[in-house]
Lab assay of single mutants.
Amino acid sequence: TTTLTYTDEEEARKAAEELKRRGITFTYTKRGGTWEIRIK
């Protein structure tokens, strides 16, 4: 499992869109002031 952490929502959203485009499965979690993208 790879976890990407972002403090900028815009960056996190761009990363999530890129992963979706590649067909990669991930979970997206907001934790306080950070956003976590966990790639399975």
Rank of each mutant, 00 (worst) to 15 (best):
R38S: 13
G32M: 06
T29C: 05
T5C: 05
A16P: 00
A12I: 02
F26G: 01
A16N: 02
E17T: 09
T2M: 13
Y6F: 15
K40M: 15
G23Y: 03
I39Q: 02
G23P: 01
L4Q: 05
K14P: 01
K20E: 12
R31T: 13
T29Y: 10
R21T: 07
T34F: 14
K40W: 15
I39E: 01
K40V: 15
T27H: 06
T29A: 09
T34N: 10
T2Q: 11
R31L: 13
A12K: 01
F26A: 02
F26C: 01
Y6K: 00
T27W: 07
T2R: 11
G23K: 04
R22T: 05
K30G: 05
E10G: 13
A12Q: 01
T1Y: 15
G32I: 04
T1L: 11
E36Y: 14
E10C: 04
E18C: 05
R13N: 10
G23L: 03
T34Y: 15
I24K: 03
Y6T: 02
G33D: 15
E18L: 07
I37L: 05
T7A: 08
R13M: 14
A15M: 15
T3H: 06
T1S: 12
I39P: 02
T27V: 09
E11C: 03
E18D: 13
R22N: 10
W35D: 00
T1P: 11
T29M: 10
A12M: 08
E36T: 09
I39H: 03
F26K: 00
K14E: 10
G23W: 02
F26D: 00
A16G: 05
Y6W: 03
K14A: 13
L19W: 02
K14L: 11
R13E: 09
I39G: 01
E10M: 13
K30R: 09
I37Y: 01
I39V: 08
T2W: 14
L4F: 14
E11P: 03
T7V: 09
T5L: 13
Y6R: 00
R21E: 09
R31Q: 12
K14Y: 07
L19N: 01
T25Q: 14
R21K: 12
I24T: 04
T29R: 09
T34D: 04
A15T: 10
D8P: 01
I37D: 00
G33N: 15
K30A: 11
